[in-house]
Structure formats: C-alpha cells, structure tokens
Lab assay of single mutants.
Amino acid sequence: EETVVIALYDYQTNDPQELALRRNEEYCLLDSSEIHWWRVQDRNGHEGYVPSSYLVEKS
C-alpha cells in the first residue's frame, strides 16, 4: 500500500538527485529509510529526494 504525503512548503532545487516540491501537492512516498531525506514521486512520475521535514503524511 502506497503512502501519500503532502508538501507543507515549496522546495526549489538544482540538484538532479532531488525533486522540487509545491506546497499542498501530493506525492507518493517511495523511501523513508533516511531520517532527513525521503524519496518521493510526483504525479508526473518524476522521482527525487526531498527534505522530510517539508512533508506530512496524508491522513
């Protein structure tokens, strides 16, 4: 079962390993094994790492 997370803030990045976030957008959580950086996928299928503190699990 996939976990959906919501971005609390915008996040901009130039790092190809990371993914930009848009506030209030939903993302699919792929990997939360790292404490500070979670791997997520956006609705267009793009994947990357984002700061975990910018996300909240959708209830």
Rank of each mutant, 00 (worst) to 15 (best):
V5R: 04
D31V: 03
E18T: 07
W38P: 03
E18H: 11
S53E: 09
E1S: 04
S52V: 06
W37G: 08
L30P: 01
L21E: 00
S52C: 07
L8Q: 08
W37M: 13
E1C: 04
R23G: 05
V4W: 10
E26L: 05
D42E: 05
E26F: 05
Y54V: 09
S32V: 06
D42R: 03
Y49C: 14
V50N: 00
L55F: 09
I35Q: 12
H46V: 10
Y11K: 03
T13D: 07
D42N: 07
H36I: 15
E18K: 15
N44W: 05
E34I: 07
R43Y: 10
L21S: 01
A7M: 01
N14M: 07
R22H: 06
G48E: 00
V56I: 12
E25W: 06
W37A: 13
Y27T: 01
W37Q: 14
H36Q: 13
A7Q: 02
T3Q: 11
L8A: 06
I6W: 04
W38V: 05
Q41R: 15
K58F: 12
Q17Y: 15
V4A: 09
Q17P: 03
A7L: 01
W38N: 03
Q41W: 02
D31C: 06
V56N: 09
L30D: 00
V5L: 10
L30V: 12
E1N: 05
R43V: 14
E2M: 09
Y54F: 04
E2W: 10
I6V: 12
W38F: 07
D15E: 14
N14E: 15
Y9W: 08
L29A: 03
V50W: 02
Y49W: 14
E57D: 05
R39M: 09
P51S: 02
H46S: 13
Y54R: 04
E47M: 06
K58A: 08
E57L: 08
I6M: 07
N44V: 06
D42T: 05
Q17M: 10
E34G: 14
D31K: 04
S52D: 02
I35H: 14
A20K: 15
T13E: 10
S33I: 02
S59C: 14
A20G: 15
V40F: 00
L19H: 01
E25C: 13
E34V: 12
S53W: 07
W37V: 14
I35C: 14
L19W: 03
W37K: 15
T13F: 02
I6T: 15
R39T: 07
Y49T: 13
S52Q: 08
T13C: 08
P16C: 14
A7G: 04
V4R: 06
R23C: 11
E57W: 05
N14V: 12
G48S: 02
L55S: 01
D31A: 06
R39I: 12
Q12L: 12
Y54A: 11
G48R: 02
L19C: 13
R43K: 12
E57G: 06
R22K: 15
T13P: 15
H36L: 08
Y11F: 07
L29I: 05
H46Q: 12
H46M: 10
V56R: 13
R43G: 12
H36M: 06
E47N: 09
L8P: 01
Q41I: 09
C28S: 13
T3K: 15
S53Q: 10
Y49N: 13
W38C: 08
E57M: 06
V4S: 07
L55P: 00
R39G: 03
D31G: 04
Q41P: 01
Q17D: 09
E2G: 13
T3I: 12
N44G: 14
R22F: 14
E25P: 00
